[in-house]
């Protein structure tokens, strides 16, 4: 469908990767862990190793959850756009094919202290 307009109304996205100074947006959400009100928005460099970013940025963000210490990034189940995907956390975002504005959900079955 297209917007109904009096004159041609072009599609002009304002959020492309070119606006992020070489970095890209990646969203994160920990399934069934609702202590964190919404998915996180972050802005890593595509060449960063995923595990480095997880340890430096995501782990501190989720630290307040009682399950946080037990999260092992190599064991979590990853979901992107409602499909399971394999992520080699030792490799970079771009090597894993993780693109601008991807939402990465991770699941930790058996861990649900707060929101079970």
């Amino acid at each position: 469908m297209a917007v109904v307009a009096l004159k041609p109304y072009p599609l002009r996205p304002v959020d492309g990767i070119e606006h992020y100074h070489g970095d890209q947006l990646v969203y994160w959400s920990w399934d069934h862990h609702l202590m964190f009100a919404a998915p996180f928005i972050t802005c890593p460099s595509p060449s960063t190793r995923v595990v480095d970013f997880l340890e430096a940025t995501i782990r501190p963000l989720i630290a307040a959850d009682p399950d946080a210490d037990r999260v092992d990034w190599t064991c979590v189940e990853w979901i992107r756009d409602h499909e399971p995907i394999a992520i080699d956390v030792g490799k970079s975002f771009s090597e894993n094919g993780i693109g601008h504005k991807d939402l990465l959900r991770f699941r930790t079955p058996g861990m649900n202290t707060l929101c079970g």
Partner: peptide, 8 residues
Amino acid sequence: YRPTWDPE
């Protein structure tokens, strides 16, 4: 958003 009567 830009107006639908004139996006300019």
